[in-house]
Each structure stands twice: as C-alpha cells, then as structure tokens.
Design a protein around this nucleic acid. Sequence first.
DNA 1: ATTATACTATACCGTTCTGTATAGTATATT
DNA 2: AATATACTATACAGAACGGTATAGTATAAT
Lengths: 187, 187
Amino acid sequence: MTTLRDKILDTATDLFQTRGINSTGVDTIVAVAGTTKMTLYKYFHTKEGLILEVLNKSQEDFQNWLDNKLTSNSKAPADKIKQLFDFIEEWVTSPNFLGMGFIKASAEFPNEENPIHQLSSKQSREFRQYISKLANEAKIKDADGLALQLSLLFEGAVQAEQMKRGSGAIKYAKKAAKLLIDGAIKQ
Amino acid sequence: MTTLRDKILDTATDLFQTRGINSTGVDTIVAVAGTTKMTLYKYFHTKEGLILEVLNKSQEDFQNWLDNKLTSNSKAPADKIKQLFDFIEEWVTSPNFLGMGFIKASAEFPNEENPIHQLSSKQSREFRQYISKLANEAKIKDADGLALQLSLLFEGAVQAEQMKRGSGAIKYAKKAAKLLIDGAIKQ
DNA sequence: ATTATACTATACCGTTCTGTATAGTATATT
DNA sequence: AATATACTATACAGAACGGTATAGTATAAT
C-alpha cells in the first residue's frame, strides 16, 4: 500500500524530471497526485523541502539499484568496476530513464549557497566516492583519479542522453571507461 | 560603443548563468541593465526570444574564442586536437567562467519539443562536430567516435565545475583525453 | 518646423506563484 | 457516543510573472 505521502513524492519526482523543477507548481503536483495542497504542506513544509526529499529519494533509489546489480552479478572486486558501465548503460537506456536528478537540479539552482545546489553537489561527490571505493577494492593505485574520470564520463553521458534520448553516447562512454580502467590497472 | 540591445543581452547572459533562467524575471533584467521593459520588448519580442539569442551569442563567443586559440597556437592538425583540452582548461578555470549555456538550458527546459531545449541540443551536436572535424584533419580513423568521447569528458568536466568551482575535474579530464587521443591515433 | 528614432516612466492586465485560513467529511479507535 | 486522524474543498493573501498601453522626453535628420 502506498501512502499519499509517497504518491506526492513520486508525482513530484516525475514532474520535476519531465517539466523542470521551477516550471512545476505545487498546484500541478497535487492535481496530478490527486490530492490537495493542505495534504502536501502537511508532509512537506515548503516546496524546497519537497525538492530536497525528491532528490534524496531519487539518489537513494539509484544507488541501491546499482549496488544490488553489482553485488549480485560480480564476484571479484575487479569485476565490479569493469561491469559498472554495463549497468549504467542498462539504467540510461531503460524506457523509464528520465535523467539524473542532481545534474538537473544543480543547473536550475546555480548558486552554490542554495541548499538544493549544495545537496546536488554532495550527491555528485558521494557517487564519485562510491566509484572510488570500487576502484580501491580492485586494488587500483590512483583510485580517486580513475573514479573522477569515470564520473566525468558518466555525467557527460547522462547529460547527452538528457539532451537527446537514444543518443547512443553511453556506448562510447563505455568504451572510454574500459580504456581508462585497463590503463589504471596496469600501473 | 555598446548599444542598449547589447547591454540587455549581456545582462541577461550573466543573470541566467548566476541565478538560473526561469528564476530571472524580465523586471530584474531591465533593472540591472538600467533600462525599461518597453526597450527590452522592442528588441526581443518575448522572453523566449531573448533566451534563444542569449544562447546563440554565448555559443558563438565560445566557439570563436576556442577556434582563435587553436588556429593561432597550433600549426599541424594533429597538434590542434592535442591542445584542445589545454584551452578548455584555460576557459573553465578562468575567473569569468560561469558555466556552459546549453548544458544549463537543456536542464531547465527538459522537454525535447521545447525550442530552447532544441537549440541547446543543436549546439551540443555542433560542438561535437567541431571536435570531429579536428580529429578528421588529424587523420584519426574513428574521428566521430573520438569526438563523442571527448565531448562527454568536456560536458562532464563543465558539469563538475558548475557544481563546485575549483573542483579540479578538468585536470583529470585532460589526462583522460590524452589517453583517448593517443589510443585513437595509434589505430 | 517637422518628423522619425530611441528611449523613459508608470500604470496596468490577467495569470500564476507559494503558502494559509476556514470549514467540513470519512474512518477508525476508544 | 466521543475523539483523534487523515483527508478534501475552496477561497484567499500577497507577491511575482510575462507582456502591453499610454504618455512623454531628448536628439538628430530632413
């Protein structure tokens, strides 16, 4: 059973991704979610609070999905980082893919003082650290350096896919990632 | 002598980058530019028209700057593509850097039917084609493939820098680019 | 002297925005 | 029967939004 709170959260997530955050009013959110503003403001005290929760849940869902994929498919630590972009490709090419929350949010709120921008920045950093952990476990020397490069390829590919669905950019990101990973392992 | 039209264009460019496009009202633009709405609407018939002109001019300026740098510093075609990320680094780390227009615009207008999104997408494609031309002149076999990979690194690095100024991501993008270029030349 | 051009100043229109106030209903618990 | 919980319905406040209408000024060209 999904609570009304979850329904609002899911609706907002979808509308923010498809129409933009600033372009989506709370009136639209409650209309699509089939509830009223009173209920929305009971659970989320401000629109900013709702945005922050949407971002947190989206990132949590993505990270959990990816981590489950990696831990259930790979045995050796070195395999995990090699398979990383296979699952990223699966995610990006899925029909459900609507983009990466923190990438869009940081563009809509460019001021570094803004709480939404700060959360986006933090999520980007945490994802990079997650890749770094994978690289470390695979005994790669410059794990942080490789993780940064892979995250650039990742964010670039997501950006490309947000601009034009079915761009095929992820295929080339994968190739580049393989080259970078192989290069880092040999060192 | 700068006309009032240019003043409005420059002001809008700056405000869009620092505060976001949807978050910047026309009242703010004219107040900062030191003029009135009547004048703004004389030159730009709608806010959307102004946004499109801002994007076009920003991209033109960037492309011209980069092309001048490349043609005045490099003799051989193969040197051009190798120096590409040196100048991108110079651009990204400059104190004037406020981000890439089309990256932010595509995030604020995620709908692919939207004229602003379409222009952003076109500019991204044209920049990739520019890199592809450089790769072709350098006699690289899979010029399009390399260009796509380099553009992913570029957009990823710009994204990283937009999220956190002074991230240093461009240094690692440069290293990765070098590896990809060397790999593509050997083939 | 007249006319065109460029611009200012200000008030306004209709809409949409976030957020709240007020009143009422339906359901389950005690 | 009384009470708490969850929710709906609607109306509104106050500000900001994009865009326009009206009236007036300053300058230069004819």
